[in-house]
């Protein structure tokens, strides 16, 4: 089975997101899209500023899990399509590291599916973020 690769090295570019939206113009049965964009925040931790997050993953396990999540979400919501992209490597503060894009006939399914997908990605995919401080040092990110 060929698993969809959700990972890309580096930040998710704004033009990639724009092109992804444009590609849906031919899918005229869609009435609503919902997009979530995760952006690296320049947190201030005890006077130290986060300048970037370095993401690593247990990639093949993450792709298997994402496939499972995708199947569950399609079974639960009447979606036309769903796209997920997550960055690996060093992503600077202000850059996009997660892009979740759901589309459906009517808005509610797209909105609910997108929200559920983001929550499940954060809770269930084996991905780790190392918050790199300005100057020197780092700490491991904790998801709430």
């Amino acid at each position: 089975m060929q698993l969809k690769n959700i990972f890309q090295e580096g930040a998710i570019a704004a033009h990639f997101i724009a092109e992804s939206i444009a590609k849906h113009a031919t899918k005229t049965e869609i009435g609503g899209h919902n997009i979530f964009l995760g952006q690296v925040r320049a947190d201030d931790i005890d006077g130290k500023k986060v300048t970037a997050i370095e993401y690593t993953s247990h990639v093949d396990m993450a792709l298997e899990k994402m496939h499972e999540i995708r199947e569950a979400i399609f079974a639960k919501y009447p979606l036309t399509c769903m796209h997920v992209h997550h960055s690996l490597g060093v992503i600077k503060a202000g850059e996009i590291c997660l892009f979740v894009f759901t589309s459906s006939k009517h808005r509610k399914a797209a909105i609910d599916a997108c929200a559920e997908c983001v929550e499940r990605i954060k809770a269930e995919l084996p991905i780790w973020g190392k918050e790199i401080f300005e100057g020197d040092g780092y700490q491991w990110k904790v998801n709430n």
Partner: peptide
């Protein structure tokens, strides 16, 4: 085998 700490993606 993989030893994995709490996940922090996204």
């Amino acid at each position: 085998l993989a030893f994995m700490p709490p996940f922090s993606g996204g």
